Computed example of a mutant assay.
Amino acid sequence: MIDPAASPQSARQRRLLLLATGTMSGVGLVGTLLPFIASMAPSDAARSRGAPVEVDLDSVEPGSLVTVAWRGKPVWILHRTGDMLERLGRHDSLLGDPLSKKDQQPANARNATRSLRPDIFVAIGICTHLGCVPTYRPEAGAADLGDDWPGGFFCPCHGSKFDLAGRVFRNVPAPLNLEIPPHAYQGETHLVIGQDRNGNQ
């Protein structure tokens, strides 16, 4: 007696049935995974918080400090005067890392002004010790900070000091210079924070 399951037509039907079942299982798996994968992508709100921030430098007067938010952090924009720039070269012996060689800084921070333009200083305004926000103390020789104080930023939480280029002083709790975020200029008065000259974020 001939087994009907052994016929070539039955074998073909079994293969088609297996192929159809496998295809439907694959479609079901993809349909199940797509919402899960989509839920892992950042939301529109999260993307906007990480987006570059544009600043009109016409609003930043010489000697003044403006703070903007980028990625939930305060970013300082300091328009340094000629006097402030002149003071930067006079106290390197007091600093822990005057040329930003030992920390996470971009190449444009490895100089005395730690900036793309000498007159404009851009830094994340968070102390590198425990994350407090230092205060802007531009006056040289402030009585409470010492005769050798050249002006800069003082962290009231634990006493860390940074000069007007965000360089950390020796013998303070903060181990590193202030962080420089990626930034670039689009013309003389237009600053973009969160994106460097090559468009990298």
Rank of each mutant, 00 (worst) to 15 (best):
Val168Tyr: 08
Met1Pro: 01
Ile120Met: 15
Thr21Arg: 13
Ala109Ile: 11
Pro35Trp: 05
Ser100Cys: 10
Ile180Trp: 07
Tyr185Thr: 04
Phe162Ile: 01
Tyr185Met: 13
Ala184Cys: 15
Thr113Asn: 04
His91Gly: 03
Leu16Lys: 10
Val60Glu: 13
Phe169Trp: 15
Pro150Leu: 07
Gly146Ile: 11
Arg49Ser: 15
Leu164Asp: 00
Gly72Ser: 11
Pro181Gln: 05
Gly26Arg: 09
Val122Tyr: 01
Asp3Ile: 08
Leu88Trp: 09
Gln9His: 07
Ala11Gln: 14
Phe162Pro: 01
Ile193Pro: 00
Ile77Leu: 05
Asn198Ile: 10
Ser39Val: 03
His190Ser: 11
Gly146Phe: 11
Lys73Gly: 00
Asp147Glu: 14
Val168Ser: 07
Val68Lys: 04
Leu65Tyr: 04
Val55Gly: 03
Met40Cys: 06
Val133Glu: 13
Gly82Val: 09
Lys102Pro: 00
Ala112Gln: 05
Pro156Cys: 10
Thr67Ala: 14
Asp163Asn: 13
Gly50Phe: 06
Arg137Glu: 13
His190Trp: 08
Cys157Glu: 01
Asp196Pro: 02
Asp144Asn: 06
Val55Arg: 00
Leu164Ile: 02
Leu95Val: 15
Ile120Val: 14
Ala123Met: 11
Glu86Val: 02
Gly141Tyr: 13
Lys102Ser: 09
Thr113Val: 15
Val68Gln: 03
Val192Asp: 02
Ala184Phe: 04
Ser48Val: 02
Val55Ile: 13
Ser43Asp: 08
Asp83Gly: 07
Cys127Arg: 00
Ala38Thr: 07
Pro4Val: 03
Leu116Ile: 09
Gly31Phe: 06
Pro175Tyr: 13
Ser64Lys: 11
Arg71Ser: 04
Asp97Trp: 05
Ser59His: 11
Tyr136His: 07
Ser10Glu: 08
Thr189Val: 09
Asn198Gln: 12
Ser93Gly: 12
Leu130Ile: 13
Ala142Ser: 03
Asp97Arg: 05
Cys127Met: 05
Arg15Pro: 07
Val27Asp: 12
Val172Gln: 02
Glu179Asp: 14
Gln201Tyr: 08
